[in-house]
């Protein structure tokens, strides 16, 4: 629901980076944690709308949703948290802590130098 605000921040970040790079930004990879409440399609749609008329117009967004990680308090295992089966994947116990959600990151930009 807040994808428009995120799209604006993302556009600003890519444009800032593009200032010091030759060529046109044509693709970008971003990643976020599963609790970021971001929907890939909505973010792409918002970015497409907001980037019209900028050097980022037509840029292809690749969004990686990173799963929530948890750490078992008994055996120390770090595992991918499954909401439907909230137990340690190694020792099956319920004594675990959710690790902080992955941040919303701009990982990589691809430039077309033609």
């Amino acid at each position: 629901m807040h994808e428009a605000a995120i799209a604006q921040s993302l556009l600003d970040a890519i444009l800032t980076e593009a200032q010091s790079q030759p060529g046109k930004p044509v693709a970008a990879k971003i990643s976020c944690g599963a609790f970021s409440a971001l929907n890939n399609e909505v973010l792409c749609f918002a970015f497409e709308a907001i980037s019209k008329g900028t050097p980022c117009e037509g840029l292809k967004l690749d969004i990686e949703q990173k799963p929530i990680q948890a750490k078992c308090k008994k055996c120390g295992e770090t595992f991918v948290f499954d909401l439907h089966r909230p137990v340690c994947t190694k020792c099956q116990c319920e004594e675990f802590e959710l690790l902080p959600d992955a941040p919303l990151l701009l990982n990589e930009i691809e430039f077309d130098e033609k």
């Binding site: 995120i6 980076e17 971003i30 990151l105 990982n107 430039f111």
Partner: peptide
Amino acid sequence: MRKVIVEKKILVANE
């Protein structure tokens, strides 16, 4: 095509 690794937080202004 040239890839540039950025690894920057997008919500840096909010942060």
